[in-house]
Computed example of a mutant assay.
Amino acid sequence: MGIAGLLPALRSIQKTRHLSEFKGQTIAVDAYVWLHKGVYACATELAIGKPTHKYVDYAMHRVRLLRHYGVEPYVVFDGGPLPAKRGTESERKKRRDENLARGKALVAQGRHSQARDCFIKCIDVTPEMAYQLIKALRPENVQYIVAPYEADAQLAYLERKGLVSAILTEDSDLLVFGCKNVLFKLDHVANTVCHISRTDFGSVTSTAMDSSSINLHGWNDTQFRAMAILSGCDYLPSIPGIGLKTANNLMRKWKTAEAVIRAVTLEGKKNVPNGYLQQYNLADRCFRFQRVYDPLEGKLVHLHDVAGEWDEESDIYVGE
Results as ranks from 00 to 15, higher is better:
residue 143 Q to N: 13
residue 171 D to P: 01
residue 76 V to R: 05
residue 293 Y to R: 08
residue 234 D to F: 12
residue 315 D to R: 09
residue 171 D to A: 02
residue 281 N to L: 09
residue 166 A to T: 14
residue 210 D to Q: 14
residue 293 Y to E: 03
residue 30 D to G: 07
residue 192 T to I: 04
residue 58 Y to S: 14
residue 319 G to C: 05
residue 25 Q to L: 11
residue 40 Y to D: 04
residue 309 E to L: 02
residue 316 I to R: 15
residue 290 Q to D: 00
residue 298 G to Q: 10
residue 104 K to G: 01
residue 271 N to Y: 06
residue 199 T to V: 07
residue 275 G to M: 05
residue 286 C to F: 06
residue 317 Y to H: 09
residue 101 A to I: 01
residue 313 E to N: 05
residue 240 P to E: 08
residue 74 Y to C: 06
residue 63 V to K: 01
residue 88 T to K: 13
residue 271 N to D: 15
residue 190 A to V: 06
residue 195 H to E: 15
residue 253 K to F: 10
residue 283 A to Q: 02
residue 40 Y to P: 00
residue 225 R to W: 07
residue 124 D to W: 00
residue 299 K to A: 09
residue 64 R to F: 10
residue 79 G to P: 04
residue 15 K to H: 11
residue 75 V to W: 05
residue 250 L to T: 12
residue 222 T to A: 12
residue 142 V to G: 04
residue 249 N to W: 00
residue 185 K to L: 02
residue 167 I to K: 09
residue 19 L to F: 11
residue 150 E to Y: 09
residue 138 R to C: 01
residue 266 L to C: 13
residue 69 Y to F: 15
residue 221 D to C: 01
residue 149 Y to G: 06
residue 80 G to I: 03
residue 45 E to M: 03
residue 242 I to M: 08
residue 225 R to Y: 04
residue 145 I to E: 11
residue 296 L to V: 13
residue 179 C to P: 01
residue 97 D to Q: 11
residue 181 N to F: 12
residue 16 T to E: 14
residue 319 G to V: 10
residue 106 L to H: 11
residue 102 R to K: 15
residue 106 L to F: 07
residue 298 G to D: 14
residue 195 H to Q: 14
